[in-house]
Write a protein that binds this DNA or RNA. Structure first.
Lengths: 237, 237
DNA sequence: TCAAAAGTGTTTGAACTACACCCATGT
DNA sequence: ACATGGGTGTAGTTCAAACACTTTTGA
């Protein structure tokens, strides 16, 4: 099998290499799991158990098994570490520097994921996971800080173009909450009236004719995401 | 070394796997090399030498060596197959389906590249390469058609935002040529006056105070790309 | 009645679209 | 002189930003 792969690539002016050489790269995926709560964007991190990175946090990642697709591996990691299924995942970039992992050659494909951290029950304690405000994350193991930053940047770029933020919110949400999510992601304040106009134009949400409850001010209308706008299991664009 | 990698990933609820299992994924890169000539966008393809895909073309790709970065691998392929150096490369996506390669498990990271096909001398004949109009490519080996389409889409999305098209042109070019490149990439016609206004606003190019020569009509002014706008060797965004 | 957030419209400048005529050069 | 593309401006429209007051509810 693997001899076939090497043969299949023999065509160019490459040197002959033996099996050992070509199958010496491990493949992993790392998931940047974003959550939102109370005007703040969070990322789910675990404690690195690598001695080189003692005391540092890292993203949730794992080696990809030969029998699973890259996306399957990401869904598996989310499932194994958090118990979540049916989450939104989007591939961002593959990091392939020779020395990015201290134990050997590992390339990793980064995905970001958006989840409703208030209403999904995570097995957080069980796996030593914790939510950290993205703003405050200054150091991570490996090149994970770089990965986090690129995923955030990607999220920022897409957030106004496509209806993705709704994965961070419960099924029913107020416009105030929605605006707050945008502000947390973009790191800027938005004008309420202009924001509402923009959202109205996008035609992403539906007025449910219900109101917020248990809130000590005038309750806002609750909206829901329009059906059919999101493909959860779309591995790319 | 590789035992260390497996150990390094032991933390989660993964099953113990032996080395064989984890190092059974090969890693390759595939390059979508775009060129422009005479109102048409081209892509550089080679004949697939895999029996499963006899008669079909494929992108230029190769296995990544354990000792080289992912980007280095792409530059190497470009260099080995075309003799080109210093080209513009941008990572697009990593394709990781289990069955995408008939000979075994190979994940591949796709890059696109933009080169000035009129003025760069390629070793085309030597490697059975050829330029094909992107519009006309209907079938390719592996999942390479999908890769090509995604790269084109990415190029289309970026082309108005960032000064990348200039890599498809010689150092000096007329506005007519520039517009033509945009039209070829986007597959639409543009209004000349509006296009010029838009480009003027971007502040990407400089009037060189020279004129086209050997043209049987009124010669256009020649422009050049403003210095400092492009990082060639930027592996992502 | 107060605090806190909900809800709502108008004005201005910038950018985008559509569109037509004269100009410079080679043959 | 003519054919070919080079070069330019204006009017109408759409989009983004700035900005303030009234309303509803709970305490």
């Amino acid at each position: 099998m693997s001899e076939r792969i090497i043969k299949a690539f023999k065509n160019a002016a490459i040197e002959k290499k033996n099996r050992q050489d070509y199958f010496n790269i491990a493949v992993s995926v790392d998931c940047v799991i974003f959550g939102y709560d109370n005007h703040e964007l969070y990322v789910l991190l675990m404690q690195s158990d690598l001695e080189e990175f003692q005391g540092l946090n890292s993203l949730l990642g794992d080696l990809v098994r030969p029998s699973e697709d890259l996306t399957e591996a990401s869904f598996r990691i989310l499932w194994e570490r958090t118990g979540l299924q049916n989450v939104y995942l989007e591939q961002v970039h593959t990091f392939g520097k020779v020395c990015r992992h201290p134990s050997g050659r590992v390339i990793t494909t980064a995905y970001f994921s958006l989840i409703d951290m208030q209403h999904q029950q995570l097995n957080i304690a069980e796996h030593q996971l914790d939510w950290y405000p993205v703003r405050k994350v200054k150091r991570l193991a490996f090149d994970h800080l770089e990965i986090l930053q690129l995923c955030l940047q990607q999220l920022q770029q897409k957030v106004m173009e496509r209806p993705v933020v709704f994965h961070l919110l419960p099924p029913l949400f107020s416009l105030r909450e929605l605006q707050s999510v945008f502000e947390a992601i973009l790191g800027i304040e938005l004008d309420r009236r202009n924001f509402r106009k923009k959202i109205a134009i996008k035609d992403w949400i539906i007025d449910t004719n219900t109101l917020e409850k248990e809130v000590n001010h005038r309750p806002g209308k609750l909206y829901k995401l329009k059906a059919g706008l999101v493909n959860n299991f779309r591995p790319y664009q």
